[in-house]
């Protein structure tokens, strides 16, 4: 057991042999390690092992029902230099993530500022705001699929029957069938689904900014815009950085919305890493290739996380 004398003894013992140095870095006793062993086992089994397996598969020619061989970086060579769909996937994923997150941030900020001011129906509105977030994605996306599908599209129906669209001769549009429109549609649904999380989190950030700062600014002569740019936004920065970080990670790995709405179509124009990897690895049975595609996301995520974490750390320690 850990006792005071042992801890104190370690501090005062002069000769540093390899054994004592090891002992010091491990700690005075091994008991503590037994306590974290279950966690280590779980992490190993559920995270480390599958990850390593995926890395191995990405360097193999694994194909469902056939013998697996190590083939080095051949998969990566193929997707980078020969696979046009993969290049499209990279472009799509970046467009999808950047546009979605920008929209979510800007709209989230606007809605949160609005909600902060609203006093009547405050609780109801704040609750209702969360609806797209709590409803199962597959279900709500199915709803959007019905709204956007060329055959059943509510929007096209409105364009055809409701004035002034009926006169203006707008549409009908094949929202999920044309490349640009389809990418726009999946981005729209992703924003719709992710917005509540932004609104609620930003709202919490806004609430935590004390009123007296705004009062001081008001007396200092600040206009509404001054207050927003010089007080609200800088003080929201830690909150914004965290949600942008999380949202970027989740958006880069998005699967549900694409799979339900377009399955990566039309003509692979809306494939993201997750859907393309699923298509290649599971639907086309080329597990090695699928793993290589999915693994490509990893360095992108690492870079994103490092950049954003740096931003969070820099200025997150305010005392309000």
């Amino acid at each position: 057991m850990v006792t005071g004398t042992e801890v104190g003894g370690a501090a005062s013992s002069p000769p540093l042999t390899l054994k004592s140095r090891l002992r010091r870095s491990i700690g005075p006793d091994l008991d503590g390690y037994y306590f974290i062993l279950p966690t280590v086992i779980i992490v190993f089994c559920l995270i480390l092992y599958p990850f390593c397996l995926a890395v191995y598969y990405s360097m193999s020619n694994a194909f469902i029902g056939e013998e697996t061989h190590f083939i080095g970086l051949e998969n990566f060579h193929y997707i980078i230099f020969e696979d046009d769909i993969f290049m499209m996937t990279v472009r799509n994923t970046l467009l999808f993530a950047v546009i979605s997150v920008v929209f979510k941030t800007v709209l989230g900020l606007l809605c949160a500022l609005l909600l902060l001011r609203i006093i009547k129906l405050r609780r109801f509105l704040r609750g209702a705001m969360l609806l797209p977030f709590v409803a199962p994605t597959a279900l709500t996306t199915l709803g959007w699929w019905l709204i956007l599908d060329p055959t059943y599209s509510h929007i096209n129906w409105i364009f055809e029957h409701v004035w002034p669209f009926s006169v203006l001769d707008v549409g009908p549009y094949n929202f999920l069938g044309e490349p640009t429109l389809a990418l726009g549609a999946v981005i729209f649904v992703n924003v719709w689904r992710g917005l509540p999380f932004f609104i609620i989190t930003i709202l919490a950030g806004l609430v935590s900014i004390p009123d007296h700062l705004y009062e001081a600014a008001e007396i200092d002569g600040a206009s509404i815009m001054d207050k927003f740019w010089k007080i609200t936004l800088p003080l929201l920065r830690p909150v914004l950085a965290v949600i942008i970080l999380f949202s970027t990670i989740f958006t880069l790995g998005e699967f549900n919305i694409i799979y339900v709405l377009t399955r990566g179509g039309p003509m692979n124009e809306t494939h993201l890493f997750a859907t393309y990897s699923f298509t290649a690895g599971v639907l086309n049975h080329e597990i090695g290739l699928g793993a290589a595609i999915a693994l490509f996301l990893f360095p992108i995520l690492v870079v994103t996380v490092i950049l954003l974490l740096r931003l969070v750390r820099r200025d997150s320690q305010y005392e309000l």
């Binding site: 004390p210 007296h212 700062l213 009062e215 001081a216 600014a217 010089k230 007080i231 800088p234 003080l235 920065r237 200025d315 305010y318 005392e319 309000l320």
Partner: peptide
Amino acid sequence: FQNYALYPH
């Protein structure tokens, strides 16, 4: 102000 209301950033 009582709590100074200094801009923390």
